[in-house]
Amino acid sequence: MSLSVAFVALLAGVVVWGLLARRLTAKSWETPGSRDDVEAEGAVSLPPAKVGLWILLAVITSLFGLFISAYWMRMEHAHGDWSPLAVPRLLWLNTALLILSSAGMQGARAAARRAQPDRVRLALIVAGVLALAFLAGQLVAWRQLSASGHFVASSPASAFFYLLTGVHGLHLLGGLLVWGKTVVRMAHPGVELLDVALSVELCTVYWHYLLLVWLALFALLLST
C-alpha cells in the first residue's frame, strides 16, 4: 500500500516535472524581459472556468480514491467480519442509463460546436432526464436492498454500498444543478449559443468524469 502510494507520487512528480521543466528552469534573475520577450513565453490559454473544473476533478478524484482505499483497508482489517453483498441487478440498467446520459451530453457538445441550438437543447434535456432516471434507479436499488434486509448498519459491505452510491449520487446532483441553470439559459429567447457553449462543454466533461467514477465504483462493488 505505502509502496504503491510512493510509486504514484513519484510518477505524478515526473509528469508534473515534464510539463513544467522548461518554465521551472528559467534563470529569472538573469533574464529581465521587455514585453516582447515575455509574450513569447506563452501561457496556457484556457478559460479559467475550465481550469477550475479540472482542478475540481482532481479534488474529487482524491476523495473517491480515498473512499476506495478505505474500502480495501476495511476489507483487509476485517478479520472475518466481511461478508460480500449481492449487488442488485438493477444497477446494470442504471449503468446503461448513465452511459446514455453521457452520450447525450456528448451529442449536445457536438451540436454546440456545429452551432445547432435546437439540437443542443434537445440533447441537453435528454441527457439530464437520463441522469435523473439514473438517480431514481439508484434510489430504487436502495429500496430493494433495504427490503431484502440489508440496511446501512447491517454489514460493512452494505454500509459501503450506501455510502459510495450516495456520495456519487450527490456529485451527480451537483452536476444537475449546473445542468438546470444551463437549460434555463438555453430556454431564454434570443440566447447566443456562444454564451452557453462553455457551460455545455464543462457539463459534458463532468458527466464523462462521473461516468468513469461510477464504472470504477460498480466494478469494485461487483468484484467484492
Binding site: 518554465r23 521551472l24 528559467a26 501561457a43 479559467p48 477550475g52 482542478i55 475540481l56 479534488v59
Partner: peptide, 24 residues
C-alpha cells in the same frame, strides 16, 4: 476551503499579469 482553494490555484495559473512568469 475547496471553494477558496480552487480560486487561489486557478488565479495563480491563469490570471497573472503580462510578464509574470512562474519563476518571477
Amino acid at each position: 476551503f475547496t471553494m477558496g482553494g480552487l480560486n487561489y490555484v486557478t488565479t495563480v495559473l491563469q490570471a497573472r499579469c503580462r510578464g509574470m512568469t512562474l519563476l518571477r
